[in-house]
Design a protein around this nucleic acid. Structure first.
Lengths: 328, 328
DNA sequence: TTGAAAGCGCTACCAG
DNA sequence: CTGGTAGCGCTTTCAA
């Protein structure tokens, strides 16, 4: 065992309740005493015992993140952002990669203040949790917990809407529809719906399926697509990485953007890369999502009223990577 | 707050110390009483309070994983494996993606039983930790904590050794040497050393640098390489994903393995994919690593003696993807 | 076989 | 401003 407040009290020659107060920066302790105590604590390498603390205070200032699908790279950026966000609110983040129920139990035992679950499977079973839970994923009215989500359907739909508005009739969507990933599914649904809504010919406006959302997949898919004489005039890409591969394929084929092809990429990270041409994107910035998640977490901790489902609406940012089909 | 053992005691009509014993499956409680108590606990949805428990028992049965470089995909597989491994030993895994020192502090406060740190930066600062720490990464004699690691240098060296033994003189290594990643660096060092040791001509036996270890990077690198008239007769790939891309490029170029090119891939995952040809690999299986890590963790928890640095030696598995340079 | 009681390290309250 | 003390939920003696 390590140093306790009693040890500090002894060497400081004060009572241990005074130490407790000093360490919590209570105004009930004289400034010099406080400083001396803090000094000694530092010297002794004191680490407050979270168990003891949360046992009495019923607060751990810790958020549990349930993340069973650790392989999903998308979420790793999100969780990194959330971690930072929560750090600023002086909350500590702890992650469990166990399956939903086990992880929730663990966090309950540890008395975290709130849990945020990233789970595509969006379970309908009533988790036995004393700790409030917030989920990230497909928000719907039947979900058991407050949910934060991105309107991916609308994102893709509005991309199609814009492209048709500038004259495109052959619009393809490159994305993942093989995995059981409701997040990807929603994007595909948005595309399908838009096809219908904007009366596009399904023969020309297709969904190109890739098995993953990485650069390589985009490259291969685009390679195939662009050799087709019936190739589209506009492309919507399901992810940023996918887009990188697509662009590569476009240039290798000697085509140019936007003259031969307009591109809009689904995206949620701030543009860091320098593409040859600034990329048109649609999506909700990662920071907005993590901010909202943090906000909802704080709300459930403080037992404030919140909307059950928060659906963040995507923004469409159009740059020179899109061109009117008439050449304008 | 949730249900406590006192609540259970009340409805069961026994003292709460009996409940505590029953729940811990102590032989000091009569079987029927025990069963009744367990039954009631389940009904009430009892979750033991980890804080209270670890406060008195000084054991949390939890391992803290420090993983600041969450983006490193390699480690995610390793951590998944370790998590499973530890689960079998009935230990719970909690992950922190904060930077080393902060994470170690957090886990100290939480009184985890041991910490395992995945940190490429392999800090030399003496972490102020009461909890024992084990690191995974470049093992060297100066490291502050017990370390488990893979002899990556030897892995690549032995691949070169084998290839030269069957007559290859033009051997290339495709890998990452741009990132500040000591793990990758070691592989490159192994290659450099082998060039020297086996007296290969550096003009023909080169290191091909990629910026990441993914399929796409392997594809691009190989594409360029294979068009070179001075192309190598054998290739060593720095990662499994890289290899997938390389193979793709090989086939696209109309070359065949092993007739035109022998390949050995650095690897640590059990072959799940069906390549056209079984792949020669060198490396330490992931499971061996996680087993060893778990073993060392248990050792430090029980204060047993252990080697300070455990260097796992890679195995070379040769299949038809390698061929003698004389065509044998 | 069960119960009573001490105490883990800490916070929060009350008395001085 | 400082010290004493109760008690958070639990495990672990020790007594009954």
């Amino acid at each position: 065992m390590g140093v306790t407040i009693k040890d500090i009290a002894k060497t400081a020659g004060v009572s241990y309740s005074t130490v407790s107060k000093a360490l919590r920066d209570s105004p009930l302790v004289k400034e010099p005493t406080k400083e001396r105590i803090i000094q000694i604590a530092k010297q002794l390498g004191y680490q407050p015992n979270a168990a003891a603390r949360s046992l009495v205070s019923k607060k751990s200032h810790t958020i549990g993140v349930v993340w069973p699908t650790i392989e999903r790279v998308t979420h790793s950026a999100l969780i990194t952002g959330l971690n930072k966000q929560l750090e600023e609110l002086s909350y500590t983040t702890l992650i469990s990669i166990n399956e939903m129920e086990f992880a929730i139990n663990t966090f309950n035992r540890y008395q975290v203040d709130a849990i945020v679950a990233f789970d595509e499977r969006n379970s309908k079973e009533p988790a036995n949790s004393t700790v409030p839970i917030v989920t990230y994923g497909i928000a719907d009215d039947t979900s058991l917990f407050p949910t934060v989500d991105v309107n991916r359907k609308q994102a893709i739909r509005s991309a199609v809407e814009y492209l048709t508005s500038i004259g495109h009739k052959k619009i393809n969507y490159i994305g993942d529809l093989l995995q059981e990933d409701r997040l990807q599914e929603e994007k595909v649904n948005g595309f399908k719906q838009a096809i219908h809504e904007f009366d596009l010919d399904p023969y020309y406006s297709r969904i190109v399926s890739v098995t993953d959302l990485e650069q390589y997949d985009g490259y291969q898919a685009a390679k195939k697509l662009l050799n087709d004489p019936e190739r589209p005039t506009a492309l919507i890409s399901g992810s940023h990485d996918l887009t990188k591969g697509i662009l590569r394929a476009v240039y290798e084929n000697g085509l140019s953007i936007p003259d031969d092809l307009s591109i809009i990429s689904y995206d949620n990270i701030p543009a860091t890369e320098n593409f040859d041409i600034p990329l048109s994107t649609v999506g909700v910035p990662l920071q907005l999502i993590t901010e909202k998640l943090a906000e909802v977490l704080m709300a459930v901790i403080n037992e404030e009223e919140i909307d059950h489902s928060i659906y963040l609406e995507p923004e469409l940012k159009i740059t020179e990577s899109c061109q009117s089909i008439n050449g304008g």
